[in-house]
Simulated assay, not measured.
Amino acid sequence: MLARLRHQLLVAAALFGTLLALGTPSASAAAVPATIPLKITNNSARGDAVYLYNLGTNLATGQQGWADANGTFHAWPAGGNPPTPAPDASIAGPASGQSKTIRMPKFSGRVYFSYGQKLDFRLTTGGLVQPAVQNPSDPNRNILFNWSEYTLNDSGLWLNSTQVDMFSAPYAVGVQRADGTTASAGRLKSGGYNAVFNTLRAQSGGWSGLIQTRSDGTVLRALSPAYGLETGALPASVMDDYVNRVWQKYASTTLTVTPFADQPSVKYYGRVSGGVMNFTNSSGAVVTTFQKPDAPSIFGCHRLLDAPNDPVRGPISRTLCAGFNRSTLLTNPNQPDTSAAAFYQDGVTNHYARTIHSQMADGKAYAFAFDDVGQHESLVHDGNPQQAYLTLDPLS
């Protein structure tokens, strides 16, 4: 279950980025080279060694593997059952106060970084096993690490900072455009790193249990609430009160979903009947239905809120997922509500996402799978990227 959820989140993020990129025409497509430089700057003020990893799917061949510092692709060898150790794909990172530039190939994947110790990657017969630190026996449980997700293809670069699985060692991402300007995302406010943990500690209802520490007292991360449910830190009923109120409201009120900002005429209308929320189109035909979602479905944006890559159910489900996590469904019957000022105002909400967004310098983060609804995600994109950036920030 743990591995399946992590895999679903990874695949969803990578697939969405890839589909978005492939579906976006670009006049500069031919200008995107086979690799682009990624400059990693270590502003962490930590004295321990940094290790980098560039792992993902080769978009030219569909193979999974890793890229070395020069951007050369290496396919993973066959794995086993039980999982076998993966080849050492680590790249020595920059010391504190220094920078290092490596090459990014046309990938859909992740750039990991760890402090003080290399990560332990394994291979199964199905491919790479990602770290799953919600499992206390995971070999990476006591390592301080984090990652960024990206897609680079002929249409450009999509690069984000992500907290979908966990909030940990802080970093910012950026891309330099052809005109020399730079777009960036993912930077915390001054003192924001510690503020996230302090806020979670003060939040009643089990949210402090998301925080993981090492035996020496080092704070390593806060798990996402999806994993908090699996570890028992959060009660399974954590969202029930809000869901019940939503279901009650829309038994007598219509929830209008306009899922595409560029297609305002496409609307779906939700009403609860017999415990099920039915959505109809403008002709009155039922197009999809939703059972009352539980907390895992809301925090993971899957299961009862599954979002297939189709033109109807997926977009509606994404909108519902965002509305539940941001607790906007009761205050606004027209969704998505894209005004950040209205988010997380109910006492029953995704306090993990609320806390992270409140400490970001620009208010944007990827704190749950569909945090991009309304463009509130920490993402940079350019169709003709000259250089990408990853800046390791202080843990303060």
Results as ranks from 00 to 15, higher is better:
Ala3Met: 09
Ala3Glu: 10
Arg6Gln: 06
Ala14Tyr: 01
Gly17Tyr: 04
Ala21Thr: 14
Leu22Gln: 08
Leu22His: 00
Thr24Pro: 08
Thr24Glu: 08
Ser26Glu: 08
Ala31Tyr: 11
Ile36Glu: 05
Ile36Val: 09
Pro37Phe: 11
Leu38Ala: 05
Ile40Gly: 00
Ser44Ile: 09
Arg46His: 10
Arg46Glu: 13
Gly47Asp: 14
Thr57Leu: 11
Asn58Cys: 02
Gly62Glu: 08
Gln64Lys: 15
Asp68Asn: 11
Gly71Ile: 04
Gly71Cys: 00
Gly71Trp: 01
Thr72Gln: 14
Phe73Thr: 08
Ala75Asn: 00
Gly80Gln: 15
Asn81His: 04
Pro85Asp: 07
Ala86Gly: 13
Ile91Gln: 10
Ser96Lys: 14
Gly97Ala: 13
Thr101Asp: 01
Arg103Glu: 12
Met104Trp: 10
Gly109Met: 03
Arg110Tyr: 12
Val111Lys: 01
Tyr112Val: 05
Gly116Lys: 12
Phe121Gly: 09
Arg122Ala: 11
Gly126Asn: 07
Gly127Trp: 10
Val129Cys: 06
Ala132Asp: 10
Ala132Cys: 01
Tyr150Val: 05
Tyr150His: 11
Leu152Trp: 13
Ser155His: 14
Ser155Gly: 12
Leu157Cys: 07
Leu159Pro: 09
Ser161Pro: 02
Met166Val: 01
Gly174Leu: 04
Val175His: 06
Lys189Gln: 15
Lys189Asp: 15
Tyr193Asp: 15
Tyr193Lys: 14
Asn194Asp: 03
Phe197Ser: 09
Asn198Val: 09
Leu200Gly: 03
Ile211Phe: 03
Ser215His: 14
Asp216Pro: 08
Asp216Trp: 06
Ser224Arg: 00
Pro225Asp: 04
Glu230Asn: 02
Met239Ser: 05
Tyr242Asn: 05
Val243Lys: 11
Val246Thr: 12
Tyr250Thr: 04
Thr253Lys: 09
Thr256Leu: 03
Phe260Gln: 00
Asp262Asn: 15
Gln263Phe: 07
Gln263Ala: 09
Ser265Ile: 02
Tyr269Thr: 06
Ser273Ile: 12
Gly275Ser: 02
Met277Val: 08
Asn281Ser: 04
Asn281Gly: 11
Thr288Pro: 03
Lys292Glu: 15
Pro293Phe: 05
Asp294Tyr: 01
Pro296Met: 05
Leu304Thr: 15
Asp306Leu: 13
Ala307Asp: 05
Thr319Ala: 15
Phe324Met: 09
Leu329Trp: 12
Pro336Val: 11
Asp337Ser: 06
Ala341Phe: 09
Asp346Phe: 00
Gly347Ala: 03
Val348Glu: 07
Thr349Glu: 07
His351Gly: 00
Gln359Tyr: 07
Phe370Thr: 04
Asp372Gln: 06
Val373Ser: 06
Val380Cys: 14
His381Cys: 10
Gln386Leu: 01
